[in-house]
């Protein structure tokens, strides 16, 4: 099966190793994507302990932090991503679901 030529949603999740909140955020993100975005998403996980420079360059000061790279505009959400409503809103998807 060939992947779609252009993936609509691209996320980057900054985590601090396998700490609880970071893992919680990753699990919530995955669940969220599977529920709302079908296959049309891509998640990149970056461990800030391993990639401190990239983290600094990206201006990330807390973990876990989710960065929505596309669609434009770039958006950051800090926290465990347990509030689905907030995320939907942040992604501009709340209207679509209603």
């Amino acid at each position: 099966m060939s992947p779609p030529t252009v993936i609509k949603f691209k996320f980057r999740l900054y985590v601090a190793g396998d700490t609880q909140n970071s893992m919680q955020a990753l699990a919530n993100l995955r669940k969220f994507c599977q529920t709302y975005l079908a296959d049309d998403y891509d998640i990149e996980v970056i461990d800030v302990f391993k990639e401190p420079c990239q983290t600094l360059d990206a201006g990330i000061f807390m973990t876990p932090t989710l960065v929505k790279l596309s669609p434009f505009p770039v958006l950051k959400i800090v926290g465990t991503l347990s509030q689905t409503e907030i995320i939907l809103q942040a992604l501009g998807l709340d209207a679509r679901t209603e």
Binding site: N21, F61, M62, G79
Partner: peptide
């Protein structure tokens, strides 16, 4: 951070 954050950087 409401207990939702693991690390903070300056």
């Amino acid at each position: 951070t409401a207990g939702e954050v693991d690390s903070v950087a300056g």
